[in-house]
Write a protein that binds this DNA or RNA. Structure first.
Lengths: 337, 337
DNA sequence: CTGAAAGCGCTAACAT
DNA sequence: ATGTTAGCGCTTTCAG
């Protein structure tokens, strides 16, 4: 049987509440005598191998210090930068003595008994929540922070400046003299608000320069085909993520198209990029870590004070210029395969 | 304020225990009257928006239905096949109404108040646990299952048949006529029992065939250098994981060495392999999903009955022969760069 | 400053 | 079959 405060109380010859206070460090140390007593109680607790019972505390305090990471689709959890976010979330939450629990929410209403029964104090999600879930969370006053999703007007969120990142990428390409600009999103990429934002940032920047944006949300074959057209092919390509860049670089290699001389490629997210690529990829980077830090901060403060207003944080992006982008070379275009 | 069984009891004009029983579906339906009453109680609960309080239940039942995934190193969590395992674990645990909580355990003793305070009913780990932690888990009788790690003689575990997988890979290569066989583990791979097992499986099989195994636990440059030596280079290479295969295939491309004609490459894990590689990689595959299923089953049964003996499950591997391996071509060897 | 006692909401043993 | 009651172990209020 585990040691309780009552066991300690008996051992120390005091009441359980004195033990509770002593252990919670409640004694400001006004009187020497009680300070000593508190100290000795702590000693005894230590000796007896006392561990506060988290379950009892949870019931008593009305909170678990546990936070849910809601997800409906496994893929989102550990894909791309998300796993960095998750790791950071855990670490960050730990600093404030909270934990992260993985909570898959399927349509079957399973989630009701999960999120609404006080098992967690709040939640986080990478994906828009189904209406029913969302409403219940609100009704039960369960704080919720969206991660990289801005589709909810009322929930707090931490999002990346996708628009700005794409915009900056285009400016980099145009400054290198590129006139035919494309953006590629692999068709396997699941719907996500960042796609639209990056696309808009891309297109707006391109148009602002008086150019015509080309956009692919397609298979690899399709874009590769376009990239092989001597006259119409883009010479500067912004990829939705570093996954696409990887594919493109690989494909171009096969077709003997030199990167960056014949095609400038820019990735997004700074993931695999630096690690295993030749040439080192120019990419739109952002600090995924920051997402976790902000999200944890927002959520914990909302748990602490449920009346806090919605808060929205935007993570800045930064273009990392490496070697996959270069000056446009007009004279080469005609001779390309 | 949330609705409790007392509120329902009052509303229904019965005692709280009747409510509790009605809601837990305890009524076998002996008498018609009570069955109806139970039904009406459920109705009322529904109408009042009752949600059982998980915290209260946890205290009362002496368990949280929460399970910890312990880790000391972030990298392990989401790397390679592990994230598949994690996802499967969550899903599997959910089937039995349990949750998975991510618990980073640093050296500072933080873990004590985490695992030993009854916040979780059991735990899982990809990595060997530090002695102190391990002992305390045992002392507090907290069930624990190791994932892909067999370094602990006493804890239950689910491991992959790494030895057999590597062994089979070698047989495949020798059956194709390869005589100079190598195995490559990237130096960045963190120490893990699977390295040794795969190495032993590899070496034993090679020696059994009367050949001399070559083993690299090195940087990419080092192995590539060896692979470029015309006379001594391996013609068949087993990689520790698909990550290494990716690197090798890429490098060989650069040096104009054709795969599989001039070098047969076998990966391990079946991860990226099929997805984004040319040629499709021959690889030692195993069902990562199974790891989660077994682990969840073992853990839950040990939580249910703490006196259950240690259980060890081994996940079978299967060699997926694709296009990165081919017959050894002796005549080509001398002419290779 | 300390102790007694009332919750927290549910489960389960016990009595009816 | 139903109601009563005693925990579960901690926090917190209220007397003293």
């Amino acid at each position: 049987m585990a040691v309780t405060i009552y066991d300690i109380a008996e051992q120390a010859g005091v009441s359980s509440s004195t033990v509770a206070r002593a252990l919670s460090g409640d004694y400001k140390g006004q009187r020497k005598k009680s300070r000593e007593r508190a100290h000795s109680i702590q000693q005894i607790a230590q000796e007896m191998g006392y561990r506060p019972n988290a379950r009892a505390r949870a019931l008593s305090e009305g909170r678990t210090r546990d936070v849910a990471l809601l997800y409906t689709d496994d893929a989102w959890l550990f894909e791309g930068v998300n796993n960095q976010v998750v790791q950071c979330l855990v670490t960050e939450l730990r600093k404030y003595d909270h934990f992260l629990t993985l909570v898959p929410i399927d349509e079957e209403g399973d989630w009701e008994d999960i999120v609404l029964n006080g098992r967690v104090d709040g939640c986080l999600s990478f994906q828009p929540l189904a209406g029913a879930i969302r409403n219940e969370l609100q009704r039960f006053n369960v704080p919720c922070v969206m991660l990289g999703d801005d589709s909810d007007e009322e929930l707090s969120q931490v999002v990346v400046d996708d628009f700005g990142g794409a915009y900056a990428a285009v400016l980099h390409l145009t400054s290198l003299g590129h006139k035919r600009l494309g953006m590629f999103v692999h068709k396997s990429v699941k719907p996500h608000c960042s796609i639209g934002h990056r696309q808009r940032g891309f297109e707006e920047a391109v148009r602002q320069k008086g150019l015509v944006p080309q956009f692919w949300h397609s298979s690899e074959e399709e874009i590769v085909d376009a990239l092989l057209q001597p006259l119409s092919r883009p010479t500067g390509l912004l990829c939705y993520s570093d996954l696409e860049s990887t594919l493109i670089v690989h494909s171009m290699w096969k077709y003997g198209i030199n990167i960056p001389n014949e095609l400038s490629v820019i990735g997004f997210n700074d993931l695999f990029s630096t690690k295993h690529m030749t040439p080192p990829l120019t990419t739109v980077a952002f600090d995924a870590h920051q997402i976790g830090v902000f999200a944890a901060d927002i959520l914990l403060s909302q748990i602490h004070n449920r009346d806090l207003p919605r808060r929205s944080e935007i993570i800045k992006t930064k273009l990392l210029v490496r070697s996959s982008t270069a000056m446009a070379r007009a004279w080469k275009l005609a001779t390309t395969v």
